[in-house]
Every structure is written in C-alpha cells, then in structure tokens.
C-alpha cells in the first residue's frame, strides 16, 4: 500500500475518535452548574439578551439536537464569540497560534538536540560513569516541574544576568528566536528527560540487534554500521517517542507560556479559565485536540516513510 492510501486509511480511523472528542467537549460545557447562557453572557445581560443567547446556542432544543448544532458549528469554523476578547473565538485562537507553534517546534528541536546525542552517548557507554551521570541528570530533570525550570531560567538568565528578555514574543523571526529561546529550553529540558529515558533503551536494543551484529560480521566500517544500521532504526523510536510525548510537550508549553508571558494559546487558555470565558475554553480545548490528532497522524506518516514494514499493513 502506498503512503498516500495509508494516510487516508489513518484519516478514516480518526473520525469516530474525533466524534467522541466533540462529545467530551460538548458535555464539558453543558455540565457546567447553572445555565450556560448565563455563564456565556455578560454579567449585566438582560433577560432578553439571555433569551437571545439561548436561542443562538440552541439551548431550547433537545440535547442531541444541540450536539448536532455544535458539530455543525465546529465544521463551519463557528465557535462563537469570546467574552474576554470580544471577538470570534476562531479569530482569537488563530491570532495566538503562531507563537505557540513556534515555541513548540523550537522546543522539539531543542529536545532532539539534547536527548538524541546524550541517549547515544549513554547507550554506547552503558554502565560507565558517563552513562550514570547522564541518567542521573535526566532523573532530576524528570522530577522538576516545568514551571520551576522556567522560573529558574527566568530568574537567573533573564532577570539577574539580563541575557534574555523576561517575556514577550517580538515581531521578526530573529526576535522570536531570541524571545522564545528560554521558554523553548524550558519545555525541552523536561521533554528531553522523558524522551531520553526511553531512547537510551531503544538505542541499546538496536545496538545489540542481530542485524547490527550481522552488519559487523560483513566487515563494514563502524561509520556505516552506526550511520546506516543503528541510526536509522533508532530514529524510528525517536519519532515514535516524540509523537507520544506531544501531549507532554503541549502541557509543558502551556505552563511555560504563562511563566514567560508568551502570547500563545496556552496562556490564552488560562486567561479564559480565570475569566470563565466558556466559548473560548471550548474552542481552545478543541484546538488542542485537533493539533494532537494532526501530530499523531504526522508521526504515523513519518514512521511509515521510515519503516517499510508499516507500509504493507
């Protein structure tokens, strides 16, 4: 099967999952104590305005009809208006997405740069002092909450030494790179600890694999054995791990954005929660779910591209 038809078969599998995702989000907002109309309206709204909101939200309809309306609205990109921002939810989210996207990709890059080489060094020197110290460092990393890492970097590198700005996003690409360096490092330090832990054992597995022994028995240079036989196979586990860690990565990004005041969707989510801006919470939750689905799909595609065995199934 070609990669393209594989892509579509995966896409089809996502549809039922996503329906449940929408049910969860729908129920989440409907489970609010009290009247969603009151929750979604201004505190000063009149009875007429409330009635209008009820009608607009279809709250006078039975529950399953309401769900139908919700699904229809989701697919037409109509997620209602944000109370906090006084603008359509879709528009608000789209404005904030680039900063979060930039930060996430930046963090992925850092995570790979940190976890990849160290996992290899640890795996190839396993059970030496080098391996032990690398693993200890990451064990500590795993036990450190993201917001604390962020705060440490913020305090010392930004506030004390003034090497970096204490927040914001900037306007040009280079400014983004500069402003988001510490936030990205923050997310990466945590994520790389998660990845590193599993990557080390994957690399060990690959290094001892029979096909690597066989490659060695062929008398190939060590450069080719590592580059062609070990690295490619280890790459698959890296991609898998990155894909699986995407939830952690996004959670980390969310927290980091609040620590460094990055104008992204994570910070927006918290603002929305404190303002009890339910349309926005609903829209953001959905956005996160869509993003994770896309990443999962992308991971599957890259795996299929790297691993010929997956293309057949």
């Amino acid at each position: 099967m070609s990669t393209i038809s594989y892509f579509f078969s995966r896409l089809l599998q996502i549809i039922p999952t996503f329906l449940i995702v929408m049910v969860i989000i729908f129920l989440l907002v409907r489970a609010l104590p009290g009247d969603p109309a009151i929750a979604m309206a201004d505190a000063k709204a009149t009875t007429e305005q409330l009635e209008q909101i009820r009608q607009r939200l279809g709250l006078d309809q039975p529950l399953w009809m309401q769900f139908g309306i919700f699904v229809k609205n989701v697919f037409t990109g109509n997620l209602g208006d944000s109370i906090l921002m006084k603008a359509p939810v879709t528009q608000v989210i789209l404005e904030r997405l680039p900063a979060s996207g930039f930060l996430t990709l930046y963090a992925v890059l850092f995570s790979l740069l940190i976890a990849g080489p160290l996992a290899f060094v640890a795996a190839l020197n396993r059970n030496t002092w080098l391996d032990t110290s690398i693993r200890t460092a990451f064990q500590v990393g795993l036990s450190t909450p993201v917001f604390y890492i962020g705060l440490l970097l913020l305090t010392f590198l930004a506030a004390q030494l003034r090497w970096f700005p204490v927040g914001g996003y900037g306007t040009t690409f280079l400014e983004h790179m500069y402003h988001l360096l510490l936030p990205a490092l923050t997310v990466a330090l945590y994520t790389s600890a998660i990845i590193m832990r599993n990557l080390r054992s994957s690399v060990i597995e690959v290094v001892d694999a029979e096909y690597v022994q066989f490659a060695r028995a062929k008398g190939l240079p060590e450069r080719i054995i590592l580059g062609r036989h070990v690295l490619r196979n280890a790459l698959i586990s890296t991609v898998t791990l990155l894909g699986l860690s995407i939830g952690n990565l996004m959670s980390g990004t969310l927290v980091t954005e609040t620590v460094f005041a990055v104008p992204g969707v994570g910070r927006l989510m918290l603002d929305a929660i404190f303002a009890r801006d339910y349309p926005l919470i609903q829209g953001l939750t959905l956005t996160f779910a869509v993003l994770v689905s896309i990443i999962f799909l992308l991971t599957d595609l890259i795996q299929a591209w790297l691993d010929p065995r997956l293309r057949v199934a």
Binding site: E210, Y211, F214, G219, L306, P308
Partner: peptide, 25 residues
C-alpha cells in the same frame, strides 16, 4: 584489520534470518 577479513575471507550467517537482516534496507 579484522574488518578486512570479516565478510571477505571469512563470512558468517546467523540463525534468525528475520532479525539478522536490517528491516529498513
């Protein structure tokens, strides 16, 4: 120097043909 003999003068085949060939190549 072993590398020049391995695979050239002395070759070896393994027990598990499934796991001894690299699945990605």
């Amino acid at each position: 120097q072993m590398r020049k003999i391995r695979g050239k003068d002395i070759a070896m085949i393994f027990q598990e043909p499934m796991s001894s060939l690299n699945p990605l190549l």
